[in-house]
Design a protein around this nucleic acid. Structure first.
Lengths: 244, 244
DNA sequence: AAGCAATGGTTCTCTGTCATACCTTATGCC
DNA sequence: GGCATAAGGTATGACAGAGAACCATTGCTT
């Protein structure tokens, strides 16, 4: 992306005319891998899919993927080990993730209000859809995810919470919804990393999780949506308070 | 995109690991321009933004954009005129859009259930958000869009209907929601083109539009969401019926 | 009638990305 | 100990796409 002209002035067509391939093309891949980490889909200590696998999934060449991983290595977010049973491993989060690196640039470019509103819409919608009809194996997955949050230790709570919500989104029956939720949740987690985790909020959160899941299992869409909106509203108020 | 191996087997990480740059890169641009047409944001007879403008918005080179326009010209969807005050103009839809062209391929690859569910979630969410708080100028835009649907002739109804819903999405206060709605609505319109437009449904639709807008202006989020869900449910039932 | 300005049409070069093949390292199994 | 295997590391050639410069056409303005 060489030095062309600046951004064109905004017009009424901007809902549709968003850029194809936001950024260097490789940045989009970076974004996706970052999602993997921020969502905790691959927890610290675990191995990412091999370079050959990942590059196939993302439909980019291995060379380009390696450049992405290089950035993450420089940020001490992952570590690569060679040899059989080697791979790229996720490192535990370090306190200060380097204030001037290749990353970090996108933070603060996030539209917080957009994120919070969109999140609430997707969550409430997913909860409602799940309550309207859920396969039997869906019930099990949901219960399992809820149990995992109950037993989670403090440092693992964010991850289990994310996985519970992600499960709900996947069970909604809309792949697009699930994918969009994953994206917005990754952004949300990034924001949440900037504020303290209060045990009091956490307990309240857990009650709400239980209520939502119960409403879903009771096949009560209105209650599920309502509870979920309340749940999201709590996080939103917290974030608005700390970031205001 | 040369002939690599086939798709990798699906895994639990697929919500996140969707391909970067779906398709030839230029196909994504084609998709966006098609949205512009399918949403009726540029009605028949009107001019698209100039090639230089469009390519900047989409962040693709003018050469690539021209290949996209070439495809649309071959499909008799647009027409280019040179000289000052020239440009690329939208042609009225022809009955049979050529059954085997460069386009047409994506149709039937649409996951109808995904589309309908995701649409309902976004619409209900947008209606709710608007009802929670809408700027004064938002009220005017909304009323204007509603009025336009009232006075629309049959062949222009789809377009005005789309614009009304799009307005609601834009007023939701989430740019992401608006963009996602635009995408899903474009897909929906494509599906709707395949089924007849019944005057009876249309009148019912109009009553619901009015009810939704009233609920929004009354600042009644629950009613707005409920009405909108009903409205979407109608379309969904219609489509499921015809496509089953 | 002449000139100007904005548009589509064309051509060039250069960079990023892809696909492929091969090298290197570490581990388990025989 | 030796070998097969699976992973990361490296090098190369081909191509798509970006960017910029230029040409051709048209209609408004002077």
């Amino acid at each position: 992306m060489a030095g062309g002209a600046g951004d064109p002035p905004p017009g009424p067509l901007d809902s549709v005319l968003r850029p194809v391939r936001a950024g260097n093309g490789f940045e989009e891949a970076l974004e996706q891998v970052l999602q993997l980490l921020r969502l905790g889909l691959v927890p610290p200590g675990e191995r990412l899919p091999s370079e050959r696998e990942l590059s196939q999934h993302l439909r980019i060449s291995r060379v380009t993927l390696r450049e992405v991983l290089k950035v993450l290595q420089d940020q001490n977010m992952v570590e690569s080990r060679r040899g059989r049973y080697g791979g790229t491993f996720v490192l535990p989060r370090t306190a200060a993730p380097d204030g001037s690196g290749e990353l970090r640039r996108r933070i603060a470019a996030v539209d917080v209000e957009d994120t919070l509103r969109f999140r609430e819409v997707l969550e409430a919608g997913a909860a409602g859809l799940c309550a309207e009809g859920l396969a039997a194996d869906g019930e099990d997955r949901l219960r399992g995810a809820l149990d995992a949050t109950q037993g989670a230790r403090l440092e693992d709570y964010r991850r289990q919470d994310t996985l519970l919500h992600l499960t709900l989104a996947e069970l909604s029956g809309s792949r697009t919804l699930a994918a969009q939720y994953a994206a917005v949740r990754a952004t949300l987690n990034e924001l949440l990393d900037g504020i303290p985790l209060l045990v009091r909020n956490l307990e309240h959160s857990q009650q709400q999780h239980t209520a939502v899941v119960e409403a879903v299992l009771d096949r009560d869409p209105d209650a599920a949506r309502e509870m979920m909106r309340e749940h999201c509203g709590g996080t939103a108020a917290l974030l608005r308070g700390f970031l205001a």
